[in-house]
């Protein structure tokens, strides 16, 4: 796979073609203007070279028409670039419904991956071709960034929040995986391989390895082990809010404002339970910061989500329009 000296990255995802199309447009614009300027400079420098020592140039002070011309034309070209770039960004931002979800946790200096059926990987990622894959990513320590050049996708991985990255692989093969955000001594060692496989091969791979519990099952077990279930009951009589069918809904907060129950809010409620308390409840919940790992947090979230997903396609979690690629911090709207 990694032979020769390529001059252009492979196009191995559905997005790659779109990104490369803008790239070629930009290269053409850059080449045109660079050659234009360089050509004019060289031509003028030769044509108007100084012929005798005391020669001076002509007094030309400017031309409004020309100034407008070279203000307006670059402006319109850049607006084309803006609209095109923003459109591709939008397309690459929203994971489609039904995308296959995979949990990714970055830490110095490795990528830990868990598939929804429980299969784990480190510094590798196996995905099927032809199916949208959505990575839900968190960090245990510092900033990282998950980058697959041949797919043209990248997203920062930030401690304390979840960012989402999605792609649809189109060609089976092995591709580079890089950490793109500097994260310390072995930053350049935080690399791996993404393997895209035909769906049948992927199924074989999934069943071939020793799978752990699925994140949902692990989360359910944790939910009991941490005695969350003593307050969060399956009816509304508990000391904490009932979690059934809660995910994706908006809830009123004590002290005003509302918040959408998404991955970020559940995470915050576990590690900083007092930050945003649902209206009608006492701030009794202790913090679990330091008691659960990032991976366990993702498992708990997967479990809470599963309580709302009966009859829904997995991965059809509502995306807040303000946070398409990432579900960063919950948006608190004033009443």
């Amino acid at each position: 796979m990694f032979t020769n000296f390529p001059f252009f990255p492979q196009q191995a995802s559905a997005q790659a073609g779109q990104v490369d199309a803008i790239y070629f447009f930009m290269v053409a614009v850059t080449a045109f203007f660079s050659i234009l300027i360089a050509g004019l400079v060289v031509y003028f420098a030769f044509k108007y070279r100084r012929r005798h020592r005391d020669e001076i140039g002509h007094a030309i002070h400017g031309s409004l028409a020309l100034e407008l011309l070279w203000t307006v034309i670059p402006f319109f070209i850049t607006m084309v670039m803006f609209v095109w770039g923003a459109k591709v960004f939008f397309d690459m931002y929203r994971p489609p419904a039904g995308a296959m979800e995979i949990h990714v946790v970055g830490k110095q200096w490795m990528w830990k991956v868990q598939h929804m059926d429980g299969r784990r990987e480190i510094n590798e990622l196996h995905v099927p071709v032809g199916r949208p894959v959505k990575l839900i990513m968190g960090s245990e320590d510092v900033l990282h960034s998950y980058y697959i050049p041949d797919f043209r996708v990248k997203a920062d991985v930030i401690p304390g929040r979840y960012n989402v990255l999605w792609f649809t692989a189109t060609r089976p093969g092995n591709y580079h995986l890089f950490c793109a955000e500097y994260c310390g001594t072995k930053h350049s060692g935080m690399i791996g391989t993404v393997t895209a496989m035909e769906p049948a091969d992927f199924q074989a791979w999934l069943s071939g390895g020793r799978a752990d519990e699925s994140p949902v099952a692990a989360g359910e077990k944790l939910f009991a082990d941490l005695t969350c279930n003593t307050c969060h009951l399956t009816d509304t009589q508990g000391r904490g809010p009932m979690l059934t069918n809660l995910f994706g809904k908006q809830v009123e907060l004590q002290g005003g404002g509302t918040v959408t129950v998404d991955e970020a809010y559940i995470r915050e409620s576990i590690v900083l339970p007092q930050a945003k308390v649902v209206a009608g409840f006492q701030p009794l919940m202790p913090t679990f910061q330091g008691l659960v790992t990032e991976e366990q947090l993702l498992q708990l979230i997967a479990y809470v989500r599963s309580l709302s997903q009966q009859g829904e396609a997995p991965g059809a979690a509502p995306q807040s329009p303000t946070m398409p690629q990432s579900s960063s911090r919950p948006v608190v709207e004033k009443k």
Binding site: Q254, G255, G256, G257, Q274, A275, K276, V277, R329, V332
Partner: peptide, 9 residues
């Protein structure tokens, strides 16, 4: 303050 309104109060 926007992120922690209650705590700030």
């Amino acid at each position: 303050r926007t992120q922690n309104p209650m705590a700030f109060q």
